[in-house]
Structures are given as C-alpha cells and as structure tokens.
Nucleic acid binder design. Structure first.
Length: 293
DNA sequence: GTCCAGGCTTTCC
DNA sequence: GGAAAGCCTGGA
C-alpha cells in the first residue's frame, strides 16, 4: 500500500490512500469505540491513543498523532499493508459480493487489541450495538486511564485484565448493565490476568486451533470466537455467522432456511481464505439494507 | 457423539 | 412488546 503523508501544523494529511472510508470502517460493526462528530469526521481510541480522522476530497486529515506514531501504530491498526483492491476484485466475481462491495467499498478489517476484543464480543452476545458501545464505554470510564478530552468528550483507555478481574460479578452487572454476561467478563479477565489463559499465543496458531482455544473461555462460542479471530488475530478465514449473515446467506445463496452447520461451512466453501472479508461486506450490506428482515 | 429448546439481563426500536 | 454481531445447560 503506497500513500503519502504531509505534515501540517497540528495534523497529518494523508494522500493517495485507496480503499479507505472511515464511515465504512467504523460503522460496519467490527469496532465499538468511535464517535462520529458533527463535521462527519470520526474520533476513535485504540491502545490508549486517540485520533480524529476527517475525509476531505481525496485526502484524510488526521489529528492527534505524529508521523512516528502513525507509522508505528495506526498504519497496522488500519491494516494498510493489505491490498484491498485485490481482495475486492476476487470477491466481486460473485455477483452478490459485487453488490455488497459496491455498498461498503471503503471497509477495512482493523487489527484491534485482543483482550479488548475478547471482552467486547462477549458483551455482544444477544445484544445490540448501541448497548455494546455503552458497556465498553462504561467499563473504560470506570477502570481505564484518562487519555485526553477531544471536542468536549473525555477518552479513557480500555483497562488491563486485572482491573475487571478484581470486581465482583454483581458490580460488573450493575455498573456496566451487561446482565448475564457479567460473570463471563469477570472470569475471562481473571484467567488472562493470572496467566491461566495465554491469549498472545493465538497469533501463532492457525484459525482452527485458535478457535478451539478461544471457545474454552466462558461466553465465547463459535460466533464470538470467529469475531475475535477476525478482528484481533488476523485470521481472515474466520466467518462469524450471526443473525444478519444467516439472513443474507439464506436470502441470496441458499434461497431457503439453512442449518447452523451449512451456514458455518458456507464461508470457506464459497470464499476460502477470504471468508472473513466477505462476511464483513455481507454483514454491513445486510444490516444497512435490512435484508431478509 | 449431534441437535435443539428454553433461559438469560437490559435496552432499543 | 419483540428483538438484539449468542452462549450454556439439559434432554432427546
């Protein structure tokens, strides 16, 4: 991925960046920590860093970072080493994917922090995106570190595992409004904090072994583990099957009700090692268009 | 071993 | 009042 960065007084100006649209990247459901500002720019926090990014003509104005920090962190976070034009070209041979990609053409899969992603997607079970965002926000404000105020809003990092592990189930449930997910959050945080669960080694595992290990965690089933593998561990074969993917697959591909197994196997069969990208284009398209609802 | 119904907290539409 | 980026348990 080749692009140019120009420095201005208080921001970076990124030029020549292809396949990149903040609204598609943040609003496609992979990430819960972003805010759309009144000027349609996006402010996001990741690994204790806060940036604001604004699309302007074909450039992107980024506030809150330096050249070193962009190259050392955000470049990888936004997955800028990957050629999405190539991925989209391959997937577009499928007419349904072609349509989904026309809709969400600027989507990219973020490389997010593993622990934050694990907890966020445990919270996502049988839940709605506004509520998931709210819970992650409440946890960070309560236990994370204050980073800075941007445009009137305080930003806090997501806490380390020992912080959540030290709270009671009742405290987590009542303070963050996470219901039956409270004990799962506490227990998973405890296992990671005490070194019982090594989440770093999953980077070296393949998709199948990573899924096997992650699903040993309470609150992590097949769908949630595939989200974690796709959004934090760079496993692009992962194909999370949720209600929207079920709807879009049954509506366009099966043209009938499909079993859970048929749905889970369809990703690899149809899209191979690009299944994760296909899933994300399809999810975003199906949810925004209300397919099959 | 696989499959499936019912229950789960709370909020959003 | 039903549905929500599902998981867990128990029983067939």
């Amino acid at each position: 991925m080749t692009y140019r960065i120009e420095k201005s007084r208080d921001s970076l100006i990124i030029k020549g960046l292809k396949d990149f649209k903040p609204s598609h990247i943040f609003e496609c459901g992979q990430c819960f920590r972003w805010k759309r500002e009144d000027d349609n720019s996006y402010t996001t926090i990741a690994s204790g860093r806060v940036i604001n990014i604004k699309e302007e003509d074909h450039d992107f104005i980024v506030k809150g970072t330096t050249l070193e920090d962009w190259n050392g962190f955000w470049h990888h976070y936004f997955d800028l080493d990957r050629d999405y034009s190539k991925i989209k070209k391959k997937l577009s041979k499928d007419p349904i994917l072609d349509e989904a990609i026309r809709f969400g053409y600027g989507m990219r899969l973020l490389n997010q922090d593993p622990y934050e992603t694990i907890i966020s997607f445990i919270i996502s079970a049988n839940n709605q995106i506004p509520r998931i965002k709210s819970a992650v926000e409440l946890i960070s404000t309560d236990l994370g570190e204050f980073i800075l105020n941007y445009n009137g809003k305080d930003y806090y990092s997501f806490p380390q595992p020992d912080k959540l592990a030290s709270k009671s189930e009742e405290y987590i449930r009542e303070k963050y409004r996470v219901g039956f997910r409270a004990d799962r959050i506490r227990e998973v945080s405890r296992r990671i904090a005490q070194g019982e669960f090594d989440h770093q080694c999953i980077f070296d595992f393949d998709h199948k072994n990573g899924k096997e290990l992650l699903t040993t965690l309470p609150g992590v089933g097949p769908k949630v583990s595939d989200c974690i593998l796709l959004f934090a561990y760079d496993k692009s074969e992962a194909f999370p099957v949720d209600v929207w993917v079920k709807r879009v697959m049954e509506y366009f591909y099966f043209k009938r009700n499909a079993t859970k197994r048929e749905l889970e196997e369809s990703g690899e069969k149809l899209f191979g090692d690009l299944a994760g990208f296909a899933q994300q284009y399809l999810f975003y398209y199906a949810r925004e268009m209300g397919i099959g609802k």
